[in-house]
């Protein structure tokens, strides 16, 4: 294999059962989720939609496990040429770009309601005429007073930046540093250091998630800040919630890399599974910094 030129013997797997099962699992998962939501909103008590969701999710998890195992086995068997490895690199890079654009949609929504819609509803600016819809409404951010408080009960208070969010910022920034230390250890073949620093990164990720849950409980039980409390709650929970979901996925990815490190996987010059997870982790970290500044702070 090593003697072959860069462009020869690109490994094309002959056939695979994984993709169609994955497509089926995705279908089952979203069909179950959709049915659950429909039944929930219609107040149906005899719904059994959750079983579709659970079954779909179980198949999805199993297929993903098999798929990644297969790819790792192929790499260990020496089937992956440098060119093929480059395909995975491009794939992960563009996947992260798509995630950036997903968050961009929600950040864009936040920008639009905060800087344009809000002032207009409050009677200022080019479209201030919309204030006629809600006479007497005054706009402020955070929005502690909704245009129609009967429909959307406004929060009493919001989460301030320099409490838990600041601690969470410090945690995530440190976790990016510890992960980089682990990466350097991997390159230098210091296996123990790799495991220790990767383990610390995972613990920091979990700590972040616990604090985030703490913050949500505080918001729901003491501040009246909920998904239903108007556009502030909508943007706050959707942005931080999707970020939290991504931290969860990132932590799972790092746990997989940790288990692989324990099993002796990764070579100093061949560890893209680790590298891809690290990219994802840094991406999640950068999103958090944007959240800290744009959602919590200013």
């Amino acid at each position: 294999m090593s003697s072959s030129a860069n462009h020869e013997h690109y490994y094309v797997p002959a056939q695979s059962r994984l993709p169609i099962w994955m497509a089926f699992a995705m279908f089952l998962t979203v069909f179950g989720l959709g049915s659950m939501m429909r039944d929930m909103s219609n107040g149906a008590t005899d719904s059994n939609a959750q079983w579709f969701f659970i079954a779909g999710f179980a198949v999805l998890a199993f297929v993903l496990y098999s798929w990644f195992s297969e790819v790792i086995r192929e790499n260990h068997a020496g089937l992956n040429s440098p060119q093929l490895k480059q395909s995975y690199v491009w794939g992960m890079g563009w996947f992260i770009f798509s995630e950036v654009m997903f968050f961009a949609a929600f950040f864009g929504a936040l920008f639009y309601v905060r800087n344009l819609v809000g002032p207009w509803l409050g009677g200022e600016g080019a479209k201030g005429v919309s204030n006629y819809l809600y006479p007497g409404f005054e706009f402020s951010w955070p929005l502690l007073n909704n245009p129609d408080n009967a429909l959307f009960q406004a929060p009493e208070e919001v989460i301030h930046a320099f409490g838990l969010p600041l601690i969470n910022t410090i945690i995530l920034v440190i976790s990016s540093i510890t992960l980089t230390i682990a990466h350097h250890a991997l390159r230098a073949e210091h296996r123990t250091q790799l495991k220790v620093w990767l383990g610390i990164t995972i613990l920091l990720g979990i700590a972040f998630l616990i604090l985030q849950a703490e913050e949500y409980i505080e918001a729901y039980t003491h501040l009246g800040l909920t998904l239903e409390s108007g556009i502030y709650g909508s943007t706050f929970f959707m942005l931080t919630g999707f970020h939290g979901a991504h931290v969860t996925i990132g932590t799972l990815m790092l746990i997989v890399q940790f288990v692989r490190a324990l099993r002796g996987h990764f070579k100093p010059d061949d560890h893209f599974g680790f590298e891809a997870s690290a990219w994802y982790w840094h991406f999640v970290d950068v999103v958090w910094l944007c959240l800290f500044v744009l959602v919590y702070w200013i």
Partner: peptide, 16 residues
């Protein structure tokens, strides 16, 4: 989220 979870993205009554 607007349909099932009460958010206000597209509803001016909640500031959206």
């Amino acid at each position: 989220m607007d349909i099932h979870f009460g958010t206000a993205f597209f509803n001016a009554a909640g500031g959206g």
